[in-house]
Computed example of a mutant assay.
Amino acid sequence: MKEAIQFLKELQKELNTQDVDCQAAPRFWTVGDYKWVETSEDNAERYTVVLPNAAECYPVDSYIESAKENGEHSEEDLKKLDDCDDDLDDILRWIQDHDEEDAYLVPEKEIHVVKPNTMFITKAEAKEHIRLNQHHYSHKAHTYAMTALRAPKVAKVWEILQEFDWDSVENAVNHKRQQEGY
C-alpha cells in the first residue's frame, strides 16, 4: 500500500508540474509522426517511383542517388540521367528504359498522424516511449498532447490524480496500523 501511495504522490507532482503543451484538461499524450500519402499532382511535395515487377517503390531522389551509387549503370547512362535535370517525365523515361518499363510515378505529400495504440498520462512517459521504440517511428516522431473531450469519467480520474491528498490516506493507514498494534 505504501508503494502505491508513493507512486500516486509522485505521479500527482509530475502531473501538476509538467508542460501542458497548450492543451486543455484532461490531457494525455500520444505519439505524433509523419507519413507520405498519395495526393494530386497539384499538392505533390515529392514523387515516388513505383517498380511493379520488383514490388518496390522509392522516392525519386533516393532512386536516383541509388542508381548512381550501385554501379549497375554505365557512365554514359548515368550522364543521361543527370541530363534529365529534374524533369519528371524524362526521369521516368530513363527509369523505364534502364530498369523497368512498367515503372510509374506517384505524387505524394507528407501528413501528420497520431500513432494508434499510444496513450500516456505524462509527457515524460511519452518521450521515453519514443526513445525506447524509435525503430517503430520516423526521425520526426514527437509527443502530441490531446484532450479527452467530453469524457467526464476521465476528467474525474485526472482530477483525483491531481488534487487528492495522498498524505491523508497514508496517515490514515498508519493510524489504523498503530491502533491494531502493527
Rank of each mutant, 00 (worst) to 15 (best):
H142V: 01
I5G: 01
F164G: 00
D99Q: 13
K68T: 14
G32V: 05
V114R: 14
T143S: 06
V31Q: 03
L132M: 08
P152I: 13
D83Y: 06
A155C: 08
E69N: 13
Q134A: 05
K79Q: 12
E101K: 00
L78Y: 01
A67Y: 14
V50F: 11
T147K: 03
D61P: 09
L132D: 03
V114T: 14
T48Q: 12
C57E: 15
K13R: 06
A124L: 07
L8R: 00
V37G: 08
L92S: 04
Q23S: 03
E10A: 09
L105G: 08
W158N: 05
M119G: 05
E69P: 11
Y182G: 07
E10H: 05
P152M: 12
Q96K: 06
Y104R: 02
I130S: 00
I160P: 00
E65R: 15
E65C: 13
N174K: 11
E65A: 15
Q12R: 08
Q96F: 07
C22Q: 03
D99V: 06
K35N: 06
P26K: 11
V20Y: 02
F7D: 00
R46Q: 10
D85Y: 08
V20R: 10
S66W: 15
N53A: 13
A148Q: 03
I95F: 12
K109G: 08
E128I: 08
P52N: 13
C57P: 00
D82G: 04
P26L: 05
